[in-house]
Nucleic acid binder design. Structure first.
Lengths: 199, 199
DNA sequence: CACGGCCGATGAACAGTGATAAGTTATCAC
DNA sequence: GTGATAACTTATCACTGTTCATCGGCCGTG
């Protein structure tokens, strides 16, 4: 006897998403979700193998959102070329700052907190990295170099965002400036250097 | 009647440290620590206001360890100058990869997971940043620019480390290479640019 | 010596967590 | 109507951080 007309699974997911966004992933508990949805905690296990699976569904959602956000920014930036990497990076940062709790579960949760899932699924979708890499190097560059450059830009970007979200940055350093610096630095340096071994 | 001769507080701290290092901060539980130490869980609250305070003591320890590690590397690198930033960054990365669980609580735990403590204490010690900044710019640079450049280098470094520790990096991208790239890129670009506003 | 007072430590308890197993109930096929 | 099947709940387990009342040994005072 479903208490509400709709299927339970999407409603559980929606409530989990709502709790994640509004109160952070620490507020995600099976009983809390169940109470809010109008069922009992064990019902969740009918649709998700465990709590990690539920969180992981949100992570997947987050990646889809991020990808859509970046592709929109990419399309918009295509009009005036030359600065498309900067636009992509800005879009990435915007997403992170607008959805800090999504960003948290997407990129900070390690195997310890979110176990029982193949590591492969953690890795960011190649599509996003390709987008960044090609924006930086152009479509001519080889896939390996593209991936490497994209990862470099991404990691620089992520560093600034991660520290900012964790409140680890000195008050006198302004966040947006740091982000802009991080992007510019990574982009310009990544464009120059080919696979230059440093050791 | 202390069951063992020594004071309880340092032994609690030592056991917490051991558990953090060997099993990760998810294994830190008051009862577990108490059992391992030979007392009961409420005894911990005689010496720490709550579990967060205990974790925070470990965070402070971590910062002291990191600082000592970097200062040692700095002293060692003073012999052959010119490459001291790279040496510092390498030392930072070594610390992170050698003590991933320390690094986790030091830099990934946000106010949500580790509440009830003033945000100020989260911010990395200025001493560490000054070390990096002066290694990059020399002692002549102004304190503001030094801090800003150090933060930029640090955040680039942290990005690569954070993604690496969270297993978010594509298998085909080799970790040490990415780290080296991140350092080099941040250093060379940070050296060039003065306070160049990007907007 | 006896008597409080104090302080470290404890046992019991509370509300909450993820998770499982057994039981209930409603719907559908035959 | 009967049986099966799926959805859902109740009860429970082991665990979490935390609090409170209590106990016991020690110390200074009379």
């Amino acid at each position: 006897m479903p208490r509400s007309a709709t299927d339970l699974k999407p409603r559980i997911l929606a409530e989990a998403r709502r709790l994640l966004v509004t109160e952070g992933h620490g507020a995600l508990s099976t009983r809390r979700i169940a109470r809010e949805v109008g069922c009992t905690a064990p019902s969740i296990y009918l649709y998700f193998a465990n709590k990690d699976a539920l969180v992981h569904a949100l992570v997947d959602e987050g990646f889809q959102l991020l990808r859509a956000h970046l592709e929109a920014a990419h399309a918009e930036a295509a009009a005036r070329p030359g600065r498309s990497v900067e636009a992509l990076c800005q879009a990435y940062a915007d997403f992170a700052l607008a959805n800090p709790e999504y960003y948290e579960v997407m990129f900070h949760l390690g195997p310890a907190e979110l176990s029982r899932y193949p590591k492969e699924r953690y890795r960011v979708q190649r599509a996003v990295l390709d987008l960044i890499g090609r924006a930086a190097l152009g479509p001519g560059a080889g896939p390996e170099r593209t991936l490497r450059t994209a990862t470099l830009i991404w990691s620089s970007l992520h560093g600034a965002i991660s520290l900012h979200l964790a409140h680890r940055i000195d008050k006198s350093v302004r966040g947006p400036e740091l982000l802009a610096d991080a992007v510019r630095v990574a982009v310009q340096a990544a464009r120059l250097e080919p696979t230059l071994r440093t050791e």
